[in-house]
Amino acid sequence: MAKAVFTTKVSPVYDDLPEHRYHFPKTYLNQVEKAVGDWIVYYEPRRSTGDLSSTGGRQAYFATARVDRIIPDPVRSDHYYAEVSNFLPFTRPVPFREGGHTYESMLAKPDGSTNKGAFGRAVRNISDREYDLIWRSGFGHVIGLDERPRPAPDAPEEPWKPTSLVAEERAPFRFDIPEEQDRRIVEQLVSRPFRDRAFAAAVKDAYHDTCAMTGLKIINGGGRSEVQAAHIRPIEHRGPDSVRNGIALSGTVHWMFDRGLLSIDDDYAMLVARDRLPDTATRLLNADGKLRLPGRADLLPHPKFLEYHRREIFKG
């Protein structure tokens, strides 16, 4: 087994749904086969679509997942799907190079320039050490290596720019990770408490700590957000820990959403179960009946998860 990087665009050319599958041509079959049973990181390139002139991609690693198996594409004979599980977004996107360090050694030439030939490969195998560095940088806030500063309730909102783990003075051992740590990392990645913390951090950040259905943003006296991260397709129904399967909701609204009293249409209009909620509850909701959503299209609730909630959870 070997870990790998899977490249996927904001608007993929292939039939990717990173939470569940990665679509790839036969060119990369050998690299993907090596990753079966092991962990990968997803990378978002600069190009956001198949158009060579497109831009807007973050040029960053943004999530991790485990490769379960490879199945042939039933329509295209020279293409395959890698089915994945345990998808988890990083709480901060990790640039491929930061602090003077390139996370994937194959992407750096001896003179410090970028190896564009290697970078052009959509699937790249990486070492355990390289994966661990990316993982630690992506989840630094969750594992206590990077604390997010919280403004005072009346302070103007500013974007958070977390310190890179690579440049973090508190981690002098960062380039000398013992092999046994890889096992501990895997144990955390499948741990429900860790995944809950990472999912909540990613969803709250995407929604700027604001309830999508009420517009309320409450920061307590300790500087912590009171908003909660809700799964659209529940985890007990095999829903992934993805921002696209999440929504930030206040406690009461989260309770109503989980019990099918509220749902969401494909145009992000709120749906209310008829005759099940009093007027005092519906008056909490945004007056225009629409969600308050993240600014990035790739963070919006995915239609597949919304459809599942309406079909299996909603009581309307």
Rank of each mutant, 00 (worst) to 15 (best):
V5W: 10
V5N: 09
F6Q: 15
T7A: 06
P12M: 00
P12D: 04
V13E: 10
P18A: 05
Y22T: 01
F24D: 15
F24A: 10
K26W: 06
K26G: 07
L29T: 04
N30D: 11
Q31C: 15
Q31S: 13
A35N: 04
G37N: 00
D38R: 08
I40Q: 06
Y42I: 02
S48P: 10
T49V: 03
G50Y: 03
G50M: 08
D51C: 02
T55I: 13
R58T: 14
A60E: 14
F62D: 11
A65D: 03
V67E: 01
D68S: 10
R76W: 00
D78Y: 02
A82W: 00
E83N: 06
S85V: 01
N86K: 09
N86G: 12
F90D: 14
T91E: 11
R92C: 10
P95W: 13
F96K: 06
E98A: 01
G99S: 01
G100C: 01
M106F: 15
L107W: 03
D111Y: 04
S113V: 06
F119N: 11
R124S: 08
I126D: 09
R129I: 13
D132C: 10
W135K: 08
S137N: 12
S137C: 14
F139W: 05
V142W: 08
D146C: 09
D146N: 15
E147M: 15
P149G: 02
P151V: 02
P151Y: 00
A152P: 14
A152H: 07
P156Q: 07
E157I: 03
P162T: 08
P162Q: 11
L165I: 07
L165G: 14
L165M: 10
V166H: 05
A167C: 00
A167M: 04
P172Y: 01
F173Y: 03
F173K: 08
F175C: 11
D176Q: 15
I177L: 02
P178Q: 02
I185H: 07
V186M: 10
Q188G: 15
S191G: 03
R192L: 06
F194I: 13
D196C: 05
D196I: 14
D196P: 09
R197Y: 14
A201C: 07
V203D: 04
T210P: 12
M213S: 14
I218E: 15
I219D: 13
G222V: 11
R224Q: 13
S225P: 10
S225A: 05
V227Y: 10
I232R: 05
R233D: 00
E236D: 12
D241E: 05
S242Y: 01
S242T: 00
N245S: 04
I247S: 03
A248N: 10
L249G: 02
L249F: 06
T252E: 12
T252K: 12
W255D: 11
M256N: 07
G260S: 08
L262N: 03
I264H: 06
D266T: 09
D266F: 05
Y268M: 07
R274F: 09
R274K: 06
D279I: 07
T280H: 09
T282W: 01
L285G: 06
D288A: 06
R292I: 11
P294A: 04
P294D: 04
R296Q: 11
R296T: 05
A297I: 02
L299E: 04
L299F: 05
L300A: 10
H302C: 04
L306T: 02
Y308S: 14
R310F: 00
I313N: 12
